[in-house]
Write a protein that binds this DNA or RNA. Structure first.
Lengths: 252, 252
DNA sequence: TGCTTAATTTTGGTATACCATATTGAAGAT
DNA sequence: ATCTTCAATATGGTATACCAAAATTAAGCA
């Protein structure tokens, strides 16, 4: 039984689960033009993605609303939004918990994400501007720099940016949005996987091929590469066994 | 300026826009175990998909809540859900309107849906059970029957069922869900397109090929077929010009 | 001591009240 | 007659109140 709380500085699980270092949380401000529900959804999304709210953890409406200084109404709307996004699971008349995907779920998600990236890569080969490709190349070399320094965090973030840039270059808003959402759902898992990954050189060589493919605008090749690129993530994840934080019937 | 109202029996636009005949609307019942927000989302989804609420039409919370015999709270939650689904557009502090995709949007959606179906088809070739393929074959022949009778409505529904069955056979829940959602967003448009389609025989021959591919479990072939199968829809849509019901600054 | 059951508390679901902003319509000035 | 300005109204956004169903705890029984 773990005891992860909403507050930073909680006690257990920290030896096995390093906190995810990331951008600061989105914050809720009075003078934003966005409705509170939307702002709350953004904050909550960050909290779940960054493992501040770990998988399976019940989300109590009153307490969380109080912490965010909003009422339950916009918070509930935010929860509905995140449920459609797959980051929150709504249990009928039993409230919400942070999504807790099974290993099988993760396998499906990675397969799906690979497919999306493959499609996007194929389209990107046809539609990317030369400037977009230049930027991808630049990111690639930045990533190599992070690799050389063995800076796993920097590597991870650059890796994400490259994939994102490739998908953006597809020019299809639905691919972009779908990619972003699925990425959020997998972020936690891939982050952990990245920090432990022993097959780093393999990933690097795959990326070399990806860069070559987009540079030569080889659509079929890039599709295939990106389709299977995430496979290594799955191997890592499955080797590590643990995917989520399992049951969270305890807390606070 | 059109005058389509929520109530049946409205006046104009009916000569150019036949109502979409479909299954009865989901209904809101007291004794359902689903929360009202979820039920309302289902009803609203049907109303939008079936063009009872036409694209661009403002959705007034109080009036609609009254019509559905619920309060604004669950209705608003439903609107948030549908917004994530892309069926509703939320204008900040100006409420919600039924989604009104531009021709460009539709083009992207069809491209995306084709990609999803291609991926699903490829996986289906590898994973479909023989029984699933049998069922697809059966649906195919039912569809041919509808074609022989020139029963466009029956044809359309069977066509949808075939595509759905193929995607289901992929065994990937995310592909299935994504397909279903995108299908909902395109339903209205494809329905209209189907009712006017002049290249019916072409579609039929494509379906013959699709059936052959899944029967022989030719993954690459089926991917390609399904990927480009929807292209004809776009040609039709773009030829017809009008995609949505344009502006709806008037109403009620 | 362990199990069943009843009282209590917590929690999610829904309705309503209230507020601020946006929209509409009327009045007045040019 | 047209534009401007201001009041009236409608509408979305948020908070709160209330209820019913769960979950928890306490009490009673075997």
């Amino acid at each position: 039984m773990s005891n992860i709380t909403l507050n930073a500085g909680s006690e257990s699980d920290l030896d096995t689960y390093e906190p995810i270092v990331d951008a600061p949380l989105a914050n809720i401000s009075e003078n934003s033009d966005l409705p509170l529900a939307q702002q709350a959804a953004n904050v909550l999304r960050d909290m779940i993605v960054q493992d501040i709210i770990p998988p399976g953890k019940p989300i109590r409406e009153r307490t969380l609303a109080q912490q965010l200084n909003i009422s339950r109404t916009p918070l509930r709307e935010a929860l509905r939004i995140l449920a459609v996004d797959g980051l929150v699971e709504l249990l009928p008349s039993r409230g919400a918990i942070a999504a807790n995907p099974s290993p099988e779920d993760v396998k499906h998600m990675l397969e799906f994400l690979g497919g999306i990236e493959g499609l996007a890569g194929e389209l990107a080969c046809k539609r990317a501007t030369d400037e977009e490709i230049d930027e991808i190349r630049a990111l690639h070399y930045e990533m190599l720099a992070a690799f050389a320094r063995k800076d796993r965090l920097a590597y991870f973030k650059l890796n994400q940016r490259i994939h994102r840039a490739l998908v953006m270059a597809s020019g299809n808003p639905l691919l972009i949005e779908t990619h972003e959402r699925m990425n959020a759902r997998l972020y936690r898992i891939r982050y952990r996987s990245n920090m432990r990954n022993t097959k780093w050189p393999t990933a690097i060589s795959e990326h070399e091929e990806i860069l070559k493919a987009i540079e030569s605008r080889d659509a079929v090749k890039l599709n295939d590469l990106m389709r299977n690129h995430l496979g290594s993530t799955w191997i890592k994840v499955s080797e590590d066994g643990q995917v989520g934080t399992a049951d969270h019937h305890d807390n606070d």
